[in-house]
């Protein structure tokens, strides 16, 4: 009966994952390998293709300053600067949507919603960037990443070519993702792993750690059993997956440092209010 409960938990979290996250790993890998009936993604590999592909990116509510300036004779460098900032803003909008999706997923974890509300906030504040970073992995390969719900493929070289510190933002995620993807987790494994990350009892400022650790232990048991069943030939996979949690924390620390640098160096930069809340006093 205990194993049945753990399987039922795995099934429940997988269903919630499919409900809340629009681009699954299965779909992303199909797009990346060209095995989909949909159109191939639009490739952004330089500033020109970024401008051409911009209509696909969800930034409609932001003023298109670059396009306005283009007609008034702004220099190429100024335009490039504005395009980079605009792209960064559209990434922020998508990130804020993704935080909302992760929140809904967290709420579906059995027992999460009856935790102290302050602790729910803390778990999300510290967990959400880790979750979003791990969810980028299925969208990436060594050459680039899918964005905009898989409609666009942006090359790693282009992201590296942006001016600092924008150029420093994605490279550590590529390095992490290429290694993480070698574990070959599928969406059902990912659902359990995300729940484990969210239910971390060592987040700073938690008021009542015990119930969180109890919930996490249950999900960990479910993950261990699920990985044994789903990947019978992959030795020590459970341990390897858990080891990734250490790398994830380093990844988030780096991300927060880059955002700090951006806030100092970019006068035009305006962080999304939800992301500001999450970043404030984080590490």
């Amino acid at each position: 009966p205990e194993a049945a409960d753990l399987r039922s938990l795995a099934k429940h979290l997988y269903e919630s994952y499919l409900k809340n996250f629009p681009l699954t790993k299965a779909k992303a890998r199909a797009i990346l390998s060209g095995k989909t009936n949909d159109n191939a993604p639009f490739v952004i590999h330089d500033m020109k293709s970024l401008l051409e592909g911009e209509q696909f990116i969800n930034c409609c509510h932001l003023p298109h300053q670059g396009q306005q300036r283009e007609s008034t004779g702004a220099t190429l460098t100024e335009l490039q600067r504005e395009v980079e900032l605009r792209f960064f803003h559209s990434c922020q909008s998508r990130s804020a949507e993704a935080v909302s999706e992760v929140t809904e997923f967290a709420k579906s974890i059995p027992g999460f919603s009856i935790l102290d509300l302050n602790d729910q906030v803390t778990l999300l504040k510290y967990g959400v960037i880790e979750v979003l970073s791990i969810m980028m992995a299925p969208l990436m390969n060594k050459d680039g990443t899918l964005i905009s719900y898989g409609q666009i493929f942006m090359t790693r070289e282009f992201l590296k070519s942006l001016r600092k510190p924008f150029s420093d933002m994605m490279e550590p995620k590529f390095e992490f993702s290429v290694k993480f993807n070698m574990l070959e987790l599928d969406d059902s494994d990912m659902a359990l792993f995300l729940a484990v990350i969210i239910l971390s009892g060592d987040r700073p400022g938690l008021l009542n750690v015990k119930p969180i650790e109890e919930l996490q232990e249950n999900v960990l048991h479910s993950l261990e059993l699920h990985l044994k069943t789903n990947h019978p030939d992959s030795l020590h996979l459970f341990a390897k997956v858990l080891q990734k949690m250490t790398d994830l924390r380093q990844l988030v620390t780096h991300h927060v440092q880059v955002i700090q640098l951006l806030k100092e160096s970019e006068v035009d930069l305006c962080l999304h209010p939800l992301l500001q809340e999450i970043m404030r006093d984080l590490y």
Binding site: S93, A96, E97, V99, S100, E101, T103, E104, K107, L117, N118, Q120, V121, T122, L124, K125, G205, H272, P273, L274, E277, I278, R280
Partner: peptide, 21 residues
Amino acid sequence: LKEKHKILHRLLQNSTSPVDL
């Protein structure tokens, strides 16, 4: 803490996800 994280708090309290993101 929830006072300093009004949007996160609202996301947690609302039964559906769409908020003024």
